[in-house]
């Protein structure tokens, strides 16, 4: 492992520049969340100021964004859970059984993810009207499944392919049914994979904006939709926007920190060989 000092040094320098690019907007934005509205924008920028919580007070008390946080939590975790429940067995079958059209089915499933949200939005709009799903969490969960299920199946299949089929076969010889074998023998092995899949899907569902905008009502609108309201036709309320953004980012970051090891392990497990 001969890496020269110069190479190593330049690696640190490049990484340092990159970190600046990532962190400057985030830190500057986070600071703005604590600025009084008169200096949300200013030139030159103000770096030293008396921090205030009035933006948070505004978004949480006056605009009740806690409700949106609740909606986001229900919809994102609900849709990920359902996508996993439906997708994991399908992925397992696609990995284990070779049947006519199994490859085509897989390809077809992942290409479903490419459907532009606008194609989905219109029919759902009508569907919601017919079945009175507008303004329900379930409606949005259903809509999110369009792009979550394909990803779940596609990622999970990668993990199941890795597991030697001898594993559940021997379990089945011992009297387990296939379903039991899947549950008690295979799933524990692919847990990091499930966690990685769940986390990635959670991020997609958590940050989704378009469908939530078109299909959500007051009782179901999510945090990204709430964030967008601070950029009204009238003006941009930067401080309120960044205050909400901190709330949007926090759960994902916390989850990523907690599940960091499983995430990397899971991704490595499924995607390499």
């Amino acid at each position: 492992m001969a890496i020269s000092l110069r190479q190593r040094l330049s690696a640190y320098v490049i990484m340092g520049i990159l970190l600046l690019f990532i962190l400057i907007p985030l830190v500057a934005g986070a600071l703005t969340a604590f600025k009084p509205q008169i200096i949300w924008v200013s030139s030159p920028p103000v770096w030293v100021f008396q921090p205030t919580l009035e933006n948070f007070e505004f978004v949480f008390i006056q605009r009740q964004n806690l409700l949106h946080l609740r909606n986001s939590l229900i919809i994102a975790s609900g849709s990920v859970a359902i996508a996993l429940i439906l997708g994991v067995p399908a992925a397992y079958a696609l990995a284990r059984f070779r049947f006519r059209g199994s490859k085509g089915l897989l390809q077809w499933l992942i290409s479903l993810r490419m459907i532009p949200p606008i194609v989905v939005a219109l029919p759902f709009y009508v569907l919601f009207q017919t079945f009175d799903l507008r303004g329900t969490h379930f409606g949005l969960i259903l809509a999110y499944l369009t792009f979550l299920i394909p990803l779940v199946i596609w990622m999970m299949r990668g993990y199941f392919v890795e597991i030697p089929s001898a594993m559940e076969e021997s379990a089945m010889v011992e009297g387990y049914s296939r379903l039991q074998a899947l549950r008690k023998v295979v799933l524990p092995v692919v847990t990091p994979g499930i966690i990685a899949t769940a986390l990635l899907n959670f991020i997609f569902a958590w940050n989704e904006y378009f469908l939530a905008l078109i299909l959500g009502g007051r009782d179901t609108s999510t945090l990204p939709v709430a964030a967008a309201t601070y950029v009204g036709r009238a003006r941009v309320e930067w401080g309120n926007l960044f205050a909400v953004n901190l709330i949007i980012m926090l759960p994902v970051i916390i989850l990523t920190i907690i599940l960091r090891r499983q995430l990397v392990k899971g991704l490595a497990l499924g995607l390499v060989e």
């Binding site: 985030l26 945090l223 950029v231 941009v236 953004n245 970051i253």
Partner: peptide, 22 residues
């Protein structure tokens, strides 16, 4: 790793707005 992942954790709409501001 965690810091490098941060942009992924922000909603695209907020990313756009943040950069508008930048």
């Amino acid at each position: 790793r965690l810091v490098l992942l941060l942009p992924l954790t922000i909603a695209p709409i907020v990313v756009g707005l943040t950069w508008n501001w930048m």
